[in-house]
Structures are given as structure tokens and as C-alpha cells.
Design a protein around this nucleic acid. Structure first.
Lengths: 187, 187
DNA sequence: TATCTATTTAGATAAAGGTCGAATTAGATT
DNA sequence: AATCTAATTCGACCTTTATCTAAATAGATA
């Protein structure tokens, strides 16, 4: 879902879509400023400014330099430039469009092959099969290991052919197996 | 407050800072789409999509073409390009920074010369005087006319020398006078 | 060590804004 | 005219998030 291009661009826009944050970016564009200075400049309390600076730092729009107890913030021009360039790129929006279309397609596959939690049949097409396998993999937690019996128990809730599903899940590297134990790695 | 550069740029970022809207922009980047298509593509209801398209149209990011009862939306590449270029411009952020600094300065002037609603003295400096005159002008509504007596009544709440203030307000074109009546134009 | 100042973290509150269902409008079709 | 479909408007709900105060942390100074 939260595809690479989309979420990266989105975070960039979210970071700059608040009046206070945009003002902060403007204020640190030409010279470095302390949190206190910024609070005075924007007529806000220090915790608020700190909060915003945290978000801006997260997306790499500002950089910080510490001097004693005061933190000097400054615009990261390179970050802004590279992010803007990426957005400006003609392809970027089209790529997002493709991601959206692909998400919609996967959703359609899921509704076609699932009836509630029940898998109507295992798709023959590899691409479609991968989609439903990904969904099934989501039924497993990432922080524990499962015995084969447990794996079968979970899969049987969705389809009778647990053996095939189990084999396919491992083949697609959505589930991993070692010495009779299965586990799912996050993402 | 809501200065030109800042609010324009801010609206642009606000428009693109929502996942659904960013997806919509991506979806209409390569071909035109109807509201229904977009709703299906994004797994949202039509009213929601319509709402988002309205916002995108407002900032000039998409254009619409009607065919029968269906509205075909498409990315306005020129709008995106020009907005991006503006953001990318080196000066833009620095300009916003100047606006912020100027706002802060005005705020300081106001707190220095006002004690609550009471004007301590009329500043000698033209720039500072303009700041407090702008504040005083805000005490008048834009949708009605005032007699000189009424103007004095309002001004006297803030300073004894209503005659000077009245004259200065007209001189600064913050209040207008014609045949004994005064009024304020919006903005 | 104790205190002071700058910043951050945590928790609470309130405003902003995304989403939906229901109702309305507008164009097309029978 | 009556109906049907696509889109928008409206009102309500609910999540997100910007802001604040109070408390905690960290570095500097006496």
C-alpha cells in the first residue's frame, strides 16, 4: 500500500503543508536560528517549535548544530533541492499513478478470489496468486515462530489445500522455514 | 499576516499533502478520468473524490472537461510545473523568511506601543505609525459608513488625540472620507 | 553539588480536515 | 414528462494534528 514513491513524496508535502513549519523553513533559509529565536519570531512556545523542527528534521529539510545547550537549526538546501527536483520530475506523478492502478488491480483480485475470509480457489496466474499469498501471509505475526501444525491451522481457515498454500508461501519467500519451524519476516 | 508568497505556497503544499489527493493527481497525470473511475481506483466514495477534486481545481492542479453528465479530470501539467518552479526558486524561502521577520517586528511594535487596547503614544517613526494605524483601522467594519462622531468615539477608546489619528488614517488610505462620512475598504 | 537556562518529552485539549450517507442538481434517455 | 445516471452539496462523524502547560533532560556556570 504505502508504496515507496508515494509515501516519500507525501511526507515531503505533509512537512511543508503547515503554516508554522513553512515559516520556520523560511526563517532558517538565510541564517541559522535557535529554538528560542524561532519561538519569538513565530509567536509560539518553544515546545511547539521543537515539535515542528522534529518533523522537518525527519524529512531532511533542516539540519541541526549544537553549541552548548542551544540547538542551532538551518535549512538543508540540498534536501529541499533534491526533493523539489523529484517532485518536478515528469515521471514521478505518472509512477504514482501506476502504483494507484496496481493497488486497485490487487484489490480487485482479492475481492474476486475471496468470499469474506474464505478463498474461493487458488488463482492459476502467478501474479494473481502472489497477491492472495501476500494477503494470507498477513495472517501471521512477525514476532514469533509457528509449527507446521499451526501454519496449517491458520491456512485452513481460508482454504482446504493447506499443503499447497504452505509450499507456495515458502516458495514466494513470504514465509520462511527452518527445521520444521515457520516464521514471517516483517515487510 | 497571510502574506502573498506564504499563503500561495502554503495552499499548494496543503493541496498535495493528503494521500488521496496525491493519488488522484497521479491517476490523472497520464490520462483523463471521471469521478467514478477515480472513486473505483482509490476505493473511495464519489463525494469524497469530488471534494478532493474541488481542492485540486482551486489551486489549479487539475482541469476539468465536461462530456454529458460525466466530468473528465486531467492533470494541469503547466500548473504543477510553475508551482514547483516557484518553490524551487532559491529566493522564495528567503522571501518567506523576510515576511516572518517583518511580522515579528510589527508584533513587537504593537506590544511596545499598546497597553491592552490603550495606545501609549503615537509613534514618531512613519513605519511604526503605519503599523499601529493598521491595527486601529481593523476596529472598523468594512460593510458600513461612519459619521465623524462615530469615528472619534471608536478612536477615543484607544487614545485621546482622535483628530490626529483620524487625519493619519485617512492620509494612510486606511480610512476613506467623502462628504463627512468615513468608511474602510476591505483589505 | 546545586542552580540556571535551553531544549525536549509527555499528556491534554481543541481545531482542522477527510470520509461517508443522504439529499440535490444537471444532463441524457425512454 | 418521467426516469436514470453522474456529480455535487450538505451535515455529521471521527481521525489527525497543532498547540499548550507541566515535567524531564542536558549542558553550563557558580
Amino acid at each position: 500500500m504505502a508504496s515507496t514513491h508515494l509515501s516519500e513524496i507525501l511526507n515531503f508535502f505533509k512537512a511543508l503543508s503547515d503554516e508554522s513549519r513553512l515559516k520556520i523553513v523560511g526563517a532558517v533559509a538565510s541564517c541559522e536560528r535557535s529554538v528560542d529565536e524561532l519561538a519569538e519570531l513565530l509567536d509560539l512556545r518553544a515546545p511547539t517549535v521543537s515539535h515542528h523542527l522534529g518533523k522537518l528534521k525527519e524529512v531532511g529539510l533542516v539540519k541541526m548544530r549544537q553549541e552548548g545547550t542551544t540547538h542551532l537549526y538551518q535549512l538543508n538546501s540540498n534536501g529541499l533541492r533534491s526533493l523539489c527536483r523529484q517532485v518536478l520530475a515528469v515521471d514521478t506523478m505518472e509512477m504514482i499513478g501506476e502504483e494507484v492502478a496496481s493497488d486497485a488491480w490487487e484489490r480487485r483480485v482479492l475481492t474476486n478470489f475471496f468470499d469474506g475470509d474464505r478463498l474461493k480457489e487458488i488463482p492459476a496466474s502467478r501474479k494473481k496468486r502472489e497477491v492472495i499469498l501476500k494477503r494470507l501471509a498477513g495472517k501471521f505475526q512477525t514476532d514469533r515462530r509457528y509449527s507446521e501444525k499451526e501454519v496449517n491451522a491458520i491456512l485452513s481457515r481460508h482454504h482446504w489445500d493447506t499443503a499447497t498454500l504452505r509450499r507456495e508461501l515458502v516458495g514466494a519467500r513470504l514465509l520462511h522455514r527452518q527445521s520444521g519451524n515457520y516464521w514471517r519476516e516483517q515487510n
